[in-house]
Nucleic acid binder design. Structure first.
Length: 811
DNA sequence: GAGTTTGAAACT
DNA sequence: CAGTTTCAAACTC
């Protein structure tokens, strides 16, 4: 298996991670001319295509590597030329991110837009600048541990501070602006970025319409392709128009210059929304290929600024490109391929483009719907203008038990995993682009850089891109209410790259039915023909561990459900809830090198991650061995990577073990039994002896009851803990002001360690007395309680006295 | 945590 | 295909 040379490897991340280039963007044209900041444009790696995955100065689609990546967007330009988002308009940007990403924004002057990278998904940072409001202090947006923290820190320390932070949502006030950010990470916690407007002016007038304020500049963040000036198509209201002397500044995020001749494709930057924001196990598979910057103006439908340039086409037309495929978080997931026609102009209507691809027993459905997972970004400020919902792209309704990513590819492609040492990207070498099916939707040439509320389009030319991990991503900036001037930038990107050309990978031939869960179909280069390259999902699962984080408004995530559903498909017959609630157990393999089906990780098509295994080969560093092992397993059993729990025969239970168990001693009532473990009953195909795992089995019923009771207890305990914790927090919150204000201390604050010890001694002494006097237990308890009451009274009395003393001396 | 039990996977 | 061995998880103490 070919491995990308270290040189190339070094290039790729550098380009992506290069923050130097972004920083100190020359503001040579502060007067409003679009300025492109393409620091590394010339250094684009020829092997990379401009896929939806973000690449470039700002890595919006980072890989899932655990290491932190810090990216800084610095706009040192004057207030009038900084990367700003116009007030009254919204720029939803959903950005795929890497784990523990840091994004430092150094808005030196006027406004700034922050792009945050987080572990799970990319989120758009919404920065609202109202007219003359300026961000004078740099602030850092960091996302770690699935949370995005905005810290107002010194620019030089922004990164470090951001690293240290990242645990709690924070509210940042800066110059009257408030950023409320919560994060959606793996944990599924919603990330809310809210920038209430404190300014007096309505959002629209503040930036765009306000003649007093400097002409607002729009910096277009180009996730893919070379950056270029994107005139903002202006329209009524606060639309950004070139006529308004607005400055459009393009920040090249992905500096890959598409070499393809295909018509440029526009991507709408969408936001990956986690449907279940509160679910810690939520996997938002960030996959999006779309890159579009959308703006919501109160008066007009949200405008979409196309930041990306033709990227997919380059993949097709340029052999030798490699695709970095985002990892799948869990096997049994279905990667939804969002394919939308870029030509869609309907800004207000949801676009549903179901694409069902039968893959053996699996169906891959692609849907785009605006209603699926809308992300709302709202500011507290209200404007008189009505906001039209930004067209959201939702991918949902995926049926299937396995997570597969389908990337349009030429037929009969050869897919090869390419490991780039030190790179957190996983590359797939695609070979043999040939004629293909008509599944791909031809995308018309991108005619304008700005699109109005267009659905996310991932397709290029005739090729569709399916990116793993991305659940429904929807930008729904539906603000029926008066809008805010806050600009929301949401960017969702895929982590895919195409690195071509590829050499044939003989050992792995696409097999839709037998590949391990999480199979990824990679798009193959090809002129207009669509095919599918199949890449075993396990190759990408490791990266998947750190999905993107999406910033969303605090207003909720109505659409998150679709994402959740999509991201969490039943695994081995387990319900979605089960799979989502249970993180995969780390394996403990010692002899199998995690390359045999003994290893659960391997069997599930996942890389080992945080496991306790020894001599593990189930990782990127041993892709060759791993591929070989996979092939061996498949040779031995083509069904090896298929879920063992499937649908039963007619009239039988919906779920049953595909092969049946062979238990002899456990009675099929222990987790040794695969049927029992899967919480299903043994079926006729089981060859077990002494089976007690059937419907009427009393033993089974007893076990079920016990298990249920245990579960109830656990839930009760958890609820009690949560409640208690909440109460304590609430109490502390209420008492804190009193304490801090110096108004006095509550009695409980006098319960110091010494007081506590003394109280305990009193109680013990009372117990001793009762024991010595041979008091009955009830009486002893009464005495002890009495003594405890006395102690409490003394404490309260002391507290009151201290408070009185304090008041007497005006303390 | 160490040792045992268990059954699937791997091997012959 | 059957029997045996290997292996890692489940289980017990």
């Amino acid at each position: 298996m070919d491995v990308v040379s270290p040189e190339l490897n070094s290039l790729l991340p550098d380009e992506i991670m290069d923050t130097e280039a972004i920083e100190d963007i020359p503001q040579s044209q502060p007067d409003g001319n679009a300025v492109q900041s393409e620091p590394g444009d010339d250094t684009s790696v020829p092997m990379e295509t401009d896929t939806p995955a973000a690449s470039g100065n700002v890595n919006l689609c980072p890989d899932a590597a655990p290491t932190e990546q810090t990216q800084t967007l610095t706009t040192s330009a004057p207030a009038d030329s900084t990367f700003s988002i116009s007030t009254g308009s919204q720029l939803p940007i959903s950005i795929s991110s890497v784990p523990s990403p840091l994004l430092t924004l150094k808005p030196s002057m006027a406004t700034s837009t922050a792009t945050t990278r987080t572990t799970d998904s990319v989120t758009g940072t919404t920065v609202t600048t109202s007219g003359l409001q300026k961000l004078t202090a740099p602030f850092t947006i960091s996302a770690a541990n699935h949370q995005i923290i905005l810290n107002k820190v010194a620019s030089s320390q922004a990164t470090e501070a951001a690293k240290s932070a990242a645990s709690q949502p924070q509210v940042i006030k800066q110059d009257g602006q408030k950023l409320l950010v919560t994060a959606i990470g793996k944990s599924g916690q919603p990330i809310v970025l809210q920038l209430p407007h404190t300014g007096n002016k309505p959002g629209v007038s503040q930036t765009v319409g306000d003649s007093k304020s400097p002409a607002p500049q729009f910096k277009v963040v180009t996730i893919g392709g070379r950056s270029e000036l994107k005139p903002v198509a202006g329209s009524a209201g606060n639309q950004v128009t070139t006529l308004q002397a607005q400055q459009l500044k393009t920040v090249q995020i992905a500096k890959k210059t598409p070499t393809s001749s295909a018509a440029p494709i526009k991507f709408i930057i969408t936001k990956t929304v986690n449907s279940k924001g509160l679910s810690p196990q939520t996997t938002v598979s960030p996959v999006i290929a779309g890159r579009v910057l959308t703006q919501n103006s109160p008066v007009m439908p949200p405008r979409t600024i196309t930041l990306s340039e033709p990227h997919n086409t380059s993949i097709q037309s340029i052999p030798g490109k490699k695709i970095a495929i985002s990892p799948l978080k869990t096997p049994s997931k279905v990667t939804v391929v969002s394919v939308a026609s870029p030509t869609s102009n309907a800004s207000q209507k949801s676009v549903t483009l179901p694409v069902n691809v039968a893959l053996g027993q699996q169906i891959l459905t692609v849907q785009q719907s605006t209603s699926a997972s809308p992300v709302k970004v709202a500011t507290s400020q209200t404007t008189t203008q009505n906001i039209k919902p930004v067209q959201s792209v939702a991918v949902g309704g995926v049926g299937g038990s396995q997570f597969k990513t389908i990337i349009p590819l030429a037929t009969q492609p050869n897919v090869q995993q390419i490991q780039v040492p030190g790179s957190r990207f996983h590359y797939v070498r695609l070979v043999t682009a040939t004629t293909a099916s008509s599944t791909g939707q031809p995308s018309g040439p991108s005619t304008s850089s700005i699109q109005t509320a267009k659905p996310m389009v991932v397709s290029t030319g005739a090729v569709r891109m399916s990116v793993p991990i991305v659940p429904a991503q929807t930008i729904k900036q539906v603000a029926p209410k008066p809008l805010t001037s806050a600009a929301v930038v949401t960017t969702t990107q895929t982590q895919q790259r195409l690195i071509m050309p590829a050499t044939p990978l003989p050992q792995i031939q696409p097999n839709f039915t037998n590949l391990p869960p999480g199979t990824v179909l990679a798009p193959a280069p090809g002129g207009g023909n669509v095919g599918y390259a199949v890449v075993p999902a396990q190759y990408v699962t490791q990266l998947q561990q750190s999905p993107f984080v999406t910033l969303a408004s605090s207003s909720g995530f109505p659409a998150s459900t679709a994402i959740q559903t999509q991201a969490r498909l039943p695994l081995n017959g387990l319900s979605t809830a089960e799979t989502t609630s249970r993180p995969r157990k780390p394996c403990n393999c010692t002899k199998s090198q995690c390359l045999k089906l003994y290893c659960d990780c391997f069997a599930n098509g996942e890389f080992c991650n945080n496991c306790n295994c020894n001599n593990c080969f189930n990782n990127l560093e041993h892709e060759t061995e791993r591929l070989k092992a996979i092939k061996t397993c498949l040779d031995r059993n083509p069904e090896a990577f298929k879920p063992k729990i499937g649908k039963g025969k007619e009239g039988e239970s919906d779920r049953r073990h595909s092969k049946g168990c062979n238990c002899k001693r456990s009675g099929c009532l222990k987790n040794y039994c695969e049927c029992y473990e899967a919480k299903i009953m043994c079926s006729s195909i089981c060859k077990c002896i002494g089976c007690k795992n059937f419907e009427e089995s009393p033993e089974r019923k007893t076990l079920m009851h016990l298990a249920d009771a245990a579960e109830v207890r656990v839930q009760q305990q958890t609820a009690a803990k949560t409640k208690l914790s909440s109460q304590i927090s609430d109490l502390l919150m209420r008492t804190a002001p009193v304490i801090s204000s110096g108004g006095g201390r509550l009695p409980y604050t006098f319960v110091t360690k010494e007081v506590l010890e003394a109280t305990c001694e009193c109680l013990l002494e009372q117990a001793k007395k009762a024991e010595q006097t041979h008091q009955p237990q009830a009486e002893a308890e009464r005495l002890i309680l009495e003594e405890f009451g006395h102690c409490l009274m003394r404490i309260i009395s002391s507290a009151g006295k201290a408070k009185a003393d304090c008041a007497s001396i005006n303390c």
